[in-house]
């Protein structure tokens, strides 16, 4: 691999984290973001599961993109994605039932997470195997980081906890931040904040 190619790969990886962050810039996959960003442990679990599915589906889609006809590409992608999601769910049930219970319905719902389908459609179906892998990794990490930022804020203000430890016995958390309405509020404020930084630059 030449240096230029390496650089290109790195670009595909890094863009998902900040410049094209799936949550804060592309605003994709907000449904699980609203639902599971209540605690940092949930956020990491959800982020890891989504990253695995993203990598798997991006790789397969980029491998067989020539064989998939334009007209039936969406059902093909969905079948591939659903397969990976089911694999994740089975593994989670077998090795980490507690996490599976905490994430609940949102694990099977990764199938309809727009990030996964969006990357398969917009990126993996047009690009090479290696680039698709880097893109999926970057997007997955970007999604996980975004979930973590939101969940740190929500866990602190909504439940009065930092990584499952209560901050103080006398702290009265604002319950609404822990509810979906609070997630919208936090995401909105963060979006505004990041746009402000972008404008300043």
């Amino acid at each position: 691999m030449t240096e230029k190619q390496q650089n290109r790969c790195f670009q595909e990886f890094i863009k998902g984290i900040i410049r094209e962050n799936p949550t804060f810039v592309l605003a994709l996959g907000l449904c699980p973001t609203l639902a599971v960003s209540t605690s940092v442990s949930n956020a990491i679990g959800m982020g890891a599961a989504s990253t695995f599915v993203l990598i798997g589906s991006n790789l397969i889609v980029s491998l067989i993109k020539k064989q998939i006809p334009e007209e039936i590409r969406i059902p093909c992608y969905i079948v591939i994605i659903a397969t990976f999601v089911t694999v994740v769910e089975l593994i989670m049930k077998a090795y980490s039932p507690a996490l599976n219970r905490a994430l609940g319905i949102y694990v099977p719902l990764i199938v309809v997470n727009c990030i996964v389908l969006g990357r398969a459609e917009a990126f993996a179906s047009k690009r090479t195997f290696v680039h698709s892998f880097m893109d999926a990794l970057g997007m997955g990490i970007g999604f996980t980081l975004a979930l973590m930022i939101i969940s740190i804020i929500r866990e602190f203000f909504g439940f009065g906890k930092i990584i499952n430890y209560p901050v103080s016995y006398n702290f009265h958390p604002a319950l609404v931040i822990g509810m979906p309405a609070g997630a919208l509020l936090v995401i909105g404020l963060l979006l505004g904040f990041f746009n402000l930084i972008k404008q300043k630059k």
Partner: peptide, 11 residues
């Protein structure tokens, strides 16, 4: 034993 309630509320 088993529940799929809203994380952070019903859970």
């Amino acid at each position: 034993l088993n529940q799929n309630e809203t994380p952070g509320l019903g859970s």
